[in-house]
Design a protein around this nucleic acid. Structure first.
Lengths: 181, 181
DNA sequence: ACAGGCATGTAAATAGTTACATGATTCG
DNA sequence: CGAATCATGTAACTATTTACATGCCTGT
């Protein structure tokens, strides 16, 4: 059976501990979302599929009238997860509307092109701040790899914000940029 | 009319000069593809749509029996392009399977987790080399903004490759990383 | 009582890729 | 001649989002 990467996200999360679809969605939204998003429309059908193939196992965990099914990983599931982790990564895609706008910025009068890099900078700084706020909670948990990933996100967005600032300067003082060579 | 970002890619490209669907696809593949991909299945229907709405204009440019239609931008098309360029960027999405694997790397024995960052590093270095090869051609053309974007791509991938090397070291010598604090 | 969060699920729409069909031209 | 490239287009599929329906429980 071919498993989508989103299926592996689920496998990885229920491997840590049993979780319901709702909890998986909540966790995705504050962790992998920045490099691998997933919606209810993917999660619930995928839970069904994984369960049908015996990679996870649902256990009813209803509280009174409110029902809930928590899924645990099975031995075949753990193997599928490890096999996937051992393959070299393939998917690497980006959709960055800001870069697209900068790419075509020559269609605007020069003064206005600066607005694009400024907006890109704001976008990255905002993202970086949001990631920063999440750091203390993760540090407290002592989870090594998610922490590596989070810090990479913080540093990367800082780098991109700095790049935007550099480009802004070059656009504002083309003569100075020329002299610096 | 709501225009997809892919529609704006076409608008931006025919704004530089008239192009056929085939030429747009070829240009996308060696430029925006790294931050905004597009396939024939999007390009041809979108050309039709843009044309029906009067934002571009197709001119038959067949050579003998081989037919070709080149599209030029119209005045409303140029306005739509500029309007879009002036809006703050919205879409910013990433799908990075390598990061996902690193995120869940705790499921592997420690020695094997290093393999993931190594593979990520190779992936980024390969990408960076491909981008580097494209630089001289762009420099010769003197196109400011695409050159900014290309150089950002080169530097960013270099940064990420360096980050991967750093993480690799930390994984190999956790004690040393501790002392460095 | 009601807002908000917990919880599951799906229908419809949109986005996007892949693979194929078709046919011309160019180059070795 | 045959392979590669030029050129247009679409059908089928996969992925993914959005929005909604449903209903329970908790706190104010």
């Amino acid at each position: 059976m071919e498993l989508s990467a989103t299926g592996h996200v689920i496998l990885g999360m229920v491997n840590w501990q049993p979780r319901s679809g709702y909890e998986i969605k909540a966790l995705v939204d504050k962790s992998t979302r920045f490099f691998w998003a997933a919606s209810y429309g993917q999660i619930y059908p995928e839970l069904k599929r994984l369960s049908e193939h015996g990679l996870i196992e649902g256990v009813d965990d209803s509280q009174g009238g409110r029902k809930r099914t928590r899924y645990s990983i099975t031995e075949p599931g753990r193997e599928a997860l490890e096999t996937w982790l051992r393959q070299p990564p393939e998917v690497l895609e980006t959709r960055d509307e800001g870069l697209l706008k900068l790419f075509f910025a020559g269609a605007l009068p020069p003064e206005e092109a600066v607005g694009i890099v400024r907006a890109m900078r704001e976008q990255r700084l905002g993202l970086m701040r949001r990631l920063r706020e999440m750091e203390p909670a993760l540090e407290a948990k002592g989870v090594t790899f998610p922490l590596f990933v989070l810090r990479r996100g913080i540093e990367l967005n800082q780098w991109i914000a700095d790049w935007a600032e550099r480009v802004e300067q070059e656009l504002l003082e083309p003569a100075a940029a020329e002299r610096r060579k």
